[in-house]
């Protein structure tokens, strides 16, 4: 379990990083916290020719609340967000989801943007981003663009990001008054990737439920408020996710959890409106 050979570039500026990505094309990988990339390198599942370490680029180290959203730069580690004193108030869903991301030791290194870029279908941060309707800011040497979270995730570990682009930052919309938020996750053990993770937002007129761990990417859907129509809508949602069996859970179990936990988190979010 030793990584294959690659060059290593410790980028000091964003331009250096973007130039390197442009030059190396699909054979380059951004190295952020390394908590997903290094296991894959150690298993030799990936063979980049160059790693571009972006963690020393000062411009990417910022977390800023502006325009009703929290913008998190590419070099911001998960722990920095987790320890933000006001996160429970400003974005309770993100605060709740963060605690489920791996372990303290991986959150100390892993970045928020790295988790989004990695796009594991069971990961909590992509789920939170989709649930909240956040955005991904992409940047290449030539161009900048902003992609909505709901269209960014294309499949298991597949995204809209092009090879020469990197994620510069992601933005999580902040808590809106009158909206309640709730998050729940079922995994085999604490810290495991989710079998099913549910994130819900409920305001006076509507509910929105996002599910991770079932489809090949996080999926959000508008659902009725708790009431007679909710169960049928949840059932339809559960089936639409095309759940699969794996060694940890059956497809049916995943659908069952979408139906049952889905209802619970929506109800919990409704209670938390305030």
């Amino acid at each position: 379990m030793k990584p294959p050979p690659f060059d290593y570039l410790r980028a000091d500026t964003l331009d250096e990083a973007l130039d390197a990505l442009a030059a190396a094309g699909p054979d380059a990988r951004v190295l952020a916290g390394g908590q997903s990339l290094l296991p894959m390198l150690n298993m030799r599942l990936v063979r980049p020719t160059i790693l571009v370490d972006v963690m020393r680029i000062g411009a990417l180290r910022t977390v800023e609340a502006r325009g009703g959203a929290l913008e998190v730069g590419a070099a911001v580690r998960q722990v920095e967000l987790e320890r933000r004193a006001d996160l429970d108030q400003t974005q309770p869903l993100l605060a709740a989801a963060l605690r489920w991301v791996g372990h303290a030791q991986t959150r100390n290194r892993g970045t928020v943007c790295g988790s989004i870029a990695h796009a594991d279908p069971s990961a909590e941060l992509p789920l939170a981003l989709v649930a909240l309707g956040g955005e991904i800011r992409l940047r290449s040497r030539r161009k900048r663009r902003v992609v909505a979270a709901e269209t960014f995730f294309a499949g298991s570990m597949a995204t809209e990001r092009r090879d020469d682009e990197m994620i510069e930052s992601v933005t999580f919309p902040l808590r809106k008054p009158g909206t309640g938020y709730a998050f729940r996750e079922i995994g085999r053990r604490h810290g495991d990737f989710a079998i099913v993770a549910c994130a819900a937002l409920v305001d006076a007129t509507s509910a929105r439920l996002a599910i991770g761990g079932v489809a090949d990417r996080p999926v959000a859907r508008a659902l009725p408020l708790p009431g007679p129509d909710l169960d049928e809508a949840l059932d339809g949602f559960a089936w639409s996710l095309e759940a699969r069996d794996d060694i940890h859970a059956t497809a049916r179990y995943r659908r069952d959890l979408v139906r049952r936990l889905g209802r619970q988190v929506i109800e919990e979010a409704a209670r938390c409106r305030g």
Binding site: L45, D120, G155, A215, D216, R217, R244, I247
Partner: peptide
């Protein structure tokens, strides 16, 4: 093989993606 042993969780999505 290797991918099935270490990445089983992600395979379904991946296969769907490739076949897609």
């Amino acid at each position: 093989g290797k991918v099935a042993s270490v990445g089983g969780r992600l395979l379904d999505g991946a296969a769907r993606f490739v076949i897609g």
